[in-house]
Design a protein around this nucleic acid. Structure first.
Lengths: 217, 217
DNA sequence: GTCAAGCTTTTTGTATACAATAATATATGT
DNA sequence: ACATATATTATTGTATACAAAAAGCTTGAC
């Protein structure tokens, strides 16, 4: 069922949804897309199911599948959920993290610092992702880590934008430091709180950014 | 894509996996099942995708789909994750729960008490589920609530068993009371901790039960 | 002009036919 | 007798044909 054909198409459709080639409520036309990808309807339908499973689209029986762009409310809810899940990862990691992982987090933060100095948002984002992935891993719970990665992937396009805000990278860096300190101290509560705040603020920043764009100047 | 045919089949297959009609690693035979359900391979394959999406089966390209019964380690991880997610729900609910919902929780606990006195495990389980669902709802975050429900559904067969342990219902009841008190007090930390413990202990109880069964007498 | 009933067209869901790949069995050589 | 190569079979992935349902359009009545 992993027929990479369908997976490739699903990835492509996902990208199209992220980049706004489809807007909320658009119907995904099996026949049109089949032609576009030069395949039959079957792999397209398989790809659709992937999208539905990951929540990027909804399916109405005998009507078709429609892209489901999250609105402001759902987006805030998703960020809040992500904050809670990452807080849980941090909480467990504080009890279980290895010394080598602590060193690695320090290294990553150094890289972040370099990226910040260079105002290299792409690189900062990449290192930031490594930071979070490392903590998922160090939760010592691979199931939880998988869930975290799933949500992270879902929110990726929204998490990235907020780094463009003035001073956000510096603030993010400081938050990282606080998190690592708590992890090193084995301070579960502190690590969880710091991580929750770190992620939640991303949602808020994103929200600010959105409303400032939507606002009439 | 919701073609209820495929959904019905997926539900049926899920039940078969839960009840142990298939064991871990069994290949799901498209043709055989197609005959069994008197449909073509197409709806069967759609159903397979549902199973894979919910983690009940894994798919190896060009080889087939195989049922993936979680082992002891993964099961513990799933319970730990559930504990963290429910703790998050409780944390948020402590800040947002409505008065009517608090009353409802009291009522549910009364029902639980009745069920316990009657040693009615089914009824206790049912009311217990209502208890948890109510708190998901009262987290005020429908996305988080949906995630919680998804995991809850996945763990349902395992959560039920532990109620058969002597004294477990009474202990569970007491934990419910603690949770409601914390929620009423708006004590986020207390509610989260109580809920985390309440769910985590279920995983442990289940583990005890399993090892006592597997153990040679 | 508007609304509704019925027909046409389009689109989804299902079955089946076909192609490609993996598993298995058989045969052949050493 | 064993290993390897080849042929056979079975199974997955894809395309297409068909059925059923929904959407859209035409026609007619008021």
């Amino acid at each position: 069922m992993d027929m990479r054909r369908a997976d490739l198409i699903a990835d492509e459709l996902e990208k199209m949804i992220f980049t706004g080639a489809f807007t909320d409520g658009d119907r995904l036309d099996e026949i049109r897309l089949a032609g576009q990808f030069s395949v039959s309807r079957t792999p397209i339908r398989e790809a659709f199911q992937r999208l539905v499973a990951s929540g990027l689209a909804v399916q109405i029986p005998r009507r078709g599948v429609f892209v489901a762009q999250p609105g402001p409310v759902e987006l805030m809810e998703m960020f809040e959920t992500m904050a809670e899940i990452e807080a849980a990862c941090a909480r467990l990691a504080a009890m279980r993290i290895s010394d080598t992982a602590l060193v690695e987090l320090d290294e990553i933060n150094q890289e972040c610092l370099q990226a910040m100095k260079a105002k290299d948002i792409d690189r900062y984002y990449q290192e930031n992702e490594r930071f979070h992935q490392t903590i998922y891993q160090q939760s010592g719970n691979s199931f939880l880590a998988k869930e975290a990665r799933r949500l992270q992937h879902r929110l990726k396009p929204y998490r990235r934008i907020q780094l463009h805000l003035r001073g956000r990278m510096a603030q993010s860096m400081a938050e990282h430091e606080t998190i690592v300190t708590a992890l090193r101290d084995g301070d579960s509560l502190g690590a969880a709180d710091a991580m929750r705040g770190h992620v939640a603020v991303q949602g808020e920043k994103f929200h600010h950014l959105m409303s400032s764009i939507t606002k009439t100047p």
